[in-house]
Structures are given as structure tokens and as C-alpha cells.
Design a protein around this nucleic acid. Structure first.
Length: 452
RNA sequence: CGGGAUGUAGCUCAGCUUGGUAGAGCGCUCGGUUUGGGUCCGAGAGGCCGCAGGUUCAAAUCCUGUCGUCCCGACCA
């Protein structure tokens, strides 16, 4: 990744984009498996269309970028660059949906969006970012609610089992809710500095958008009804979270399932050793044939230089192949999830067994990275029992601070005033009778934290 | 939007106080050497000192303005 010649934007170079492609592949397969199809909608939104859903517009107004000229002339109507595509997609759904037989409508879009944030951070908050947004319409509230939970589950699965980032899934508070939604659910991860990162969201709109954009259908009982809609999104921010969670002082550590390169082969030879070179190429062929994402590094730099380079890039496994290995009919296998010279970092594997051993090793690395992150999350999730401790932990940015909570907006605002922390999400029921923050009756169990 | 920094080689930066021939490390190119944890030696290429104005015999350096970027805060899916 590099900074771009535009404020608050980044360029993904091939290796970084490779990470995104892996995330896309994993998400897309799950979307398809749950019955969704991909489609594409325009980047620009006419202002008149945008303003239909009141809360939605008000929520996004401050961060919308506008196009006011085209072809060298002022436009009769400003065009918004989409900050999200609800309004365009709902407008189209209104045309497509007439009968309950047209439902559910299950569509996903892979797209870029622009949100004019006052303050940006590379990867975690950029003006333009890549994401996917799923938009569905249903014939009943129950069905829509199920969809929202199903996709929240997909996000939690991808975060934990692909990116190896443990998360808490739950519902957003009223103040953190998506503009225009009835309920917003999120997955929240914890970064090493004690701040929480929202890594995916799933929204239940009820009939709000359907009313604003006219999505009506004839129901089975012959009544005319508005559809129940949902939307859900995950962005490349997930990758930023993954890098922060797993990175160490030698650079990135990428979980195998997300790694553009799972295995790098570094040949080690003096001068022109045709034998080593040929053996390395043969190994690469074999591993590629067995389905591994493998790269052979034949550049001129010294082996030591390459070791450092690939470690910084986070490749899970490195295979060193030199004359010594060749003579022994073996390769040296080095795993990135272990520290330099730590027990087990380097092992010797018979050349013949390499594919088999590699598969097992990659699985083990995937598990080990998740386990390390999980242990961190658990040790930094603290149940506060009294207000004083609660406030102190939040100020110290100690992690996810868990309390029985009243769900009152005023209480949340007061906590924010005192600590700058907010609720991340909540689960029901509460595990205590009264709110630790303010003493009112508790309604839910909430995670509070400083957030990105 | 408020506060603070900063802009000099591809990158990271020194030089500015006290005006006078444009610097270092890394990277890049070439030759040699080396290759199991960022080899070493030598030779080279590369800069409108963010931009505009001013002061001066003379400006990277002093003054004014302007633009960009970064950090802290307020705001924020």
C-alpha cells in the first residue's frame, strides 16, 4: 500500500490488492452459497433521489462529495458520489418488485464508495474505499430479520476463520445506528492498542426505505404491502484490522487463508548452481500443481535479504532450498508465526513430503494466529463492576469493557463526555440488574471501548 | 472547523539560527566480489530546495502570501 497523490486516499499495489482479492473470493463464495447474486449500480446519485429518505440523507449529508459540473458546464441537478447505494438500489427495486413472487430479492454489489471524512487514516478510514454492499428485499419482517442475522454470521465467520481476527457480534446502540435503519448489527474487533474496530455491519430497515422509494408488492393475501429491506457491508478496512491484529515488530503476519502468497521458495546457491535452481523450479511446479499459492524468488538479492523481505510481507511459510538441503533430499521450512530463532521456527522436511506437510502447517498457522488474537481479545475484555472502575478502564483504553447497560442515549453521551469511549455493540439479555454507568435498570450487556 | 508541525534527490532526512558553487544514508545504474539471516569494494546517474511575490550585489536560508501533506482535537459508516 502507498499513499496516493490525493488527500486521504491510498493506492493498493499488487500484493496489497492480492489481499483484497482473497477477501473478495472468500466473501463472494459465501454470498453465493446463501443465494445472492452480484450486480452493479451507478456511482452517481441525483440529488432529488438522495433526499427521499429523511434520516438517511441527514446521516450522510456531511460526508457526501458532489459533482456539480459535466462537459464543462454546470449541471442542472447536482450528482452525489455514492457514499453507499441504498437509494439507487431501492429505486430500482421499486421497478422490479410487484408480487410476493418477486421476493426475496437478494443482490450484492462490489464497488467503491466515497465518504468525505474530516479525518482519515490509511486503510482504516479513507475517503474512497472498496467494499461490498448487499441489498435485499423481503416479503416479511421475519424473513428480513433472518437475513440480517445470516449475513452478520457470514461476516463473523470470515473475520474469524479467514482473517483470523476474533470479533464480538452484536447490535449497535441508537446513536451508532446506520442512518435510516431500525436495527444495526456489527462485528467488532480489538486492536493491540486497545481501540475497537468495526469490521462489518448488517442493517434491518423494516419498511422505511420501501416507503420512501415505493417498493410495493401484492402479497399472497391480496393486500398491497411495502417490502422489508436490509443491507450489509464489509470493506477493505477488514484488511487493515487484520494487519494491525497480527503484525509484529518484523512486519506483517498474514493468515494463510488470506495470503496472496502462502509459500515462498528461496533458492540458495553459490554462483550458477543449475542443480539448486532446477530443484527449486520443480518444487514450485509441484506445489502449484497441488493447489498452493506459491512463489519462487529468483531475484539476484542475497538469501538473507529475501528472508527479511518476505517476512515483512507476512508470507506464512518460507522454504529454503540449497545445496545442503538437496544433498539430504530435504528442504528447510520456516514459519512466520514463530519468532526469529524461536523453537520450531525452522524445521527440515523431506522433499517428498513437502506438499502434505505444508498443508498441515498452513492449517496450524491459521489456527495459531487466531488463537493468539483470541487470547488477546479475551484478556482485554473486562467486566467492570462499578462506575469508577468502568470510567478508569475506558480512559486507560484497556480494551473492551463489558457492563450491564441501560441503553439510554443520555447515559451513553455522558460516558462519551467523560471518557471519549462509546458503545461498540450490545447483546441481550443484560447480565446484571442495573446499569454500571448510571444505575438505571439494565436492558442489555454492552461492550464499551475507544474506537477508530 | 480549531491547534501544532512540515514541504530540499525515488525514499528518510541534514543544511536555514549567522544569506555566498546543493549534501548524507538508503535505493537506482555499471564493474567486480559475495550468497544458509538485510555481503563488501569501486565508479556513476539523479534536485526549478512546494508555489508566488518581496528584501538584497546575491535567497534553500530573511519577510509576506498561498497551496499541499502529516499529527492532535471536535465531527463521523
Amino acid at each position: 500500500m502507498s499513499l496516493a497523490p490525493v488527500r486521504g486516499c491510498v493506492v493498493l499495489r499488487p500484493y496489497g490488492y492480492g489481499l483484497w482479492e482473497r477477501l473478495v473470493a472468500e466473501l463472494d463464495a459465501r454470498f453465493k452459497a446463501t443465494g445472492h447474486e452480484n450486480a452493479y449500480f451507478p456511482l452517481l446519485i441525483p440529488e432529488s433521489l438522495l433526499v427521499r429518505e429523511q434520516q438517511h440523507v441527514e446521516g450522510f449529508a456531511p460526508e457526501v462529495a458532489w459533482v456539480t459540473q459535466g462537459g464543462g458546464e454546470p449541471l442542472a441537478e447536482r450528482l452525489a458520489i455514492r457514499p453507499t447505494s441504498e437509494v439507487t438500489i431501492m429505486t430500482m427495486y421499486a421497478k422490479w418488485v410487484q408480487s410476493y413472487r418477486d421476493l426475496p430479492l437478494l443482490i450484492n454489489q462490489w464497488a467503491n464508495v466515497v465518504r468525505w471524512e474530516k479525518r482519515t487514516r490509511p486503510f482504516l478510514r479513507t475517503l474512497e474505499f472498496l467494499w461490498q454492499e448487499g441489498h435485499t428485499a423481503h416479503a416479511s419482517a421475519t424473513e428480513a430479520a433472518e437475513e440480517v442475522q445470516r449475513m452478520l454470521g457470514v461476516y463473523a465467520d470470515v473475520a474469524e476463520n479467514v482473517a483470523a481476527v476474533p470479533v464480538y457480534a452484536g447490535e449497535k446502540s441508537e446513536s451508532e445506528r446506520f442512518a435510516g435503519a431500525l436495527h444495526t448489527f456489527s462485528i467488532e474487533a480489538l486492536m493491540p492498542d486497545g481501540r475497537a474496530l468495526q469490521a462489518g455491519t448488517s442493517h434491518e430497515f423494516g419498511q422505511n426505505f420501501a416507503r420512501a422509494y415505493g417498493i410495493e408488492f401484492s402479497a399472497e393475501d391480496q393486500t398491497l404491502q411495502h417490502a422489508w429491506t436490509t443491507s450489509w457491508g464489509m470493506s477493505w478496512r477488514m484488511l487493515g484490522g487484520m494487519m494491525m491484529v497480527h503484525g509484529d515488530d518484523r512486519g506483517l503476519r498474514i493468515p494463510p487463508k488470506l495470503a496472496p502468497v502462502e509459500v515462498v521458495i528461496v533458492p540458495i546457491h553459490k554462483g550458477e548452481s543449475g542443480e539448486v535452481r532446477a530443484a527449486a523450479r520443480e518444487l514450485q511446479q509441484r506445489l502449484a500443481g497441488a493447489g498452493f499459492r506459491v512463489r519462487l524468488d529468483e531475484r539476484e538479492q542475497s538469501p538473507g535479504w529475501k528472508f527479511n523481505e518476505w517476512e515483512m510481507r507476512g508470507v506464512p511459510v518460507r522454504i529454503e532450498l540449497g545445496a545442503r538441503d538437496l544433498a539430504a533430499g530435504a528442504v528447510t521450512v520456516v514459519r512466520r508465526d514463530r519468532a526469529f530463532k524461536e523453537e520450531g521456527q525452522k524445521t527440515t522436511v523431506p522433499l517428498e513430503d513437502t506438499p502434505l506437510r505444508l498443508r498441515a502447517l498452513l492449517d496450524e498457522i491459521q489456527r495459531s494466529l487466531f488463537a493468539q488474537a483470541k487470547a488477546f481479545l479475551e484478556s482485554h475484555t473486562i467486566a467492570a463492576r462499578d462506575r469508577e472502575t468502568f470510567v478508569r478502564l475506558l480512559r486507560e483504553r484497556a480494551g473492551m469493557i463489558e457492563i450491564p447497560w441501560c441503553e439510554l442515549a443520555a447515559c451513553e453521551a455522558a460516558v462519551k463526555e467523560a471518557t471519549s469511549a462509546t458503545t461498540r455493540n450490545v447483546r441481550r439479555p443484560a447480565r446484571g440488574p442495573t446499569c454500571v454507568a448510571c444505575g438505571e435498570p439494565a436492558k442489555a450487556q454492552a461492550y464499551f471501548a475507544q474506537s477508530y
